[in-house]
Design a protein around this nucleic acid. Structure first.
Lengths: 244, 244
DNA sequence: AGGACTTATCGTCACCTTGACAATAAGCCG
DNA sequence: CGGCTTATTGTCAAGGTGACGATAAGTCCT
């Protein structure tokens, strides 16, 4: 019965944000402590209901701002996927659209007030089961990390974890933190600097650090997020993570 | 104001299915002719509203069945992404979750009755602008094709376009149709048969075709869709499509 | 200042994969 | 049977990768 329009059912729709960053060479995720039921006191991804007249990305940005105080999107934001509506909220069916944010380590508003308290937590602690998240947020996080791992292979998005300018070593620690592996600094340097359209030498160097000063790079124009366009440049051949 | 729960707004939610297949060496997409406004008479992706108590995949399978008569999912189905809710339906805000189906060329119920008439159309005609789809379905199709192109590179999903058993040449025409390029049969054969965990020789051969008989393969167990698990085996190193 | 230490960067080399392409195999078709 | 078509096996050079040696150029300590 193709034309069965049985009362176009409505669903509550939420957005959740899996915000990933690298803190001290370790991949971290932004979590908030829930102040209300269900899952009161449990850690959860930042998120909330999409408001009437709002778009998905708009809602994601707003929720992120509400829970961290960050006004501008501090990194790369993309849609991760939708979950539900069944069996993920004890209160009833809720459809949620998860988003993935890859960003440099930005400070979160530690309001400590009546607001939900947001903070960075090592991803490993969650995936290992040390921390259990509310709802199906654990699965979302797992999916997000897998997506991030994969993105680093063939897109220049590893740089989204760094600031505007960064050294090859900083970029390498991002890859190591996300992939959970060690990479040979010399081979990584060769690949990163040798891939056309990836990095652009700023001509400036680091100073004051221990060891030999390093050259500062930025993302090449081709690899930078263009207005409205998806990230264009592809790492080709990809920078594959070590398997097994 | 983190605890702003301003009347958890509800949205109508639909699912759309971008069903892709290869017909005569050309990538095709399943489209229906709309019988009602808006976009009456225009071609559109099969889809419809998610019913109360239904999950996304369930709804996608149901809609596909309703518009084609196919009861079992004939190939690989995965979520593509969500679109909206704003500015995609003249009747108002509608959130839609697009799905991607990669399947062998299956016959569609040519009901011709009051049902929306589903049929295969060459993807190229749509992307070239010869055919214009309803809503934002053109963008969904573009995203779907891009996803399919990418999936063929590093997953064994190219085989989802073939039947249970297929020749290397059949698999190659899938790659050629999706990527829109020509591939060297000898190099493709080497890569396809030489990648561990990809293809499995059935021991049987084709007969009656023109030319030398070809060996019949099936997907190796590791590359077959496991219950509940995502497609496991990864083509490593990937089978990269030719760039530029 | 000099030496130890640390990190950055450049080179080398063997191995693997890939793209281009020759050669052979094994069916149909007349 | 000869011609045609497609399948499959090899060959070879170029390019990319992993492992690792060798320098370079700072900081830090004495």
């Amino acid at each position: 019965m193709p034309e069965s329009h049985p009362a176009p059912a409505c669903f509550p729709v939420t957005v959740d944000v899996v915000a990933l960053t690298v803190v001290d060479d370790v991949l971290n995720v932004l979590l908030v402590t829930r102040l209300i039921e269900p899952f009161r006191g449990r850690l959860a991804l930042p998120g909330g209901f999409v408001l009437p007249g709002e778009d998905l990305v708009t809602a994601a940005i707003r929720e992120l701002a509400e829970e961290t105080g960050v006004e501008q999107v501090p990194g790369h934001l993309e849609q991760l996927g939708s979950y539900g509506p069944r069996g993920r909220d004890p209160r009833g069916d809720v459809l949620t659209v998860a988003h993935l944010l890859l960003a440099p380590n930005f400070p979160v508003l530690s309001a400590g007030s009546d607001a939900e308290h947001a903070a960075w937590y090592p991803v490993g602690q969650v995936l290992d089961g040390e921390l259990e998240l509310a709802f199906d947020h654990g699965r979302m996080l797992a999916d997000a990390v897998e997506r991030a791992k994969s993105k680093l292979e063939y897109s220049p998005l590893g740089a989204a974890f760094c600031g505007d300018e960064f050294t090859v070593a900083q970029l390498r620690t991002v890859y190591e933190a996300v992939w959970g592996t060690r990479l040979d600094p010399r081979n990584f340097h060769r690949k990163a600097t040798g891939t056309p359209g990836f990095l652009e030498d700023t001509g400036r160097m680091t100073t004051g650090e221990t060891g030999r000063p390093a050259a500062l790079f930025r993302l090449a124009a081709a690899a930078r997020p263009a207005a409205g366009q998806p990230i264009r440049a592809v790492l080709n051949p990809p920078l594959m993570r070590p398997r097994d």
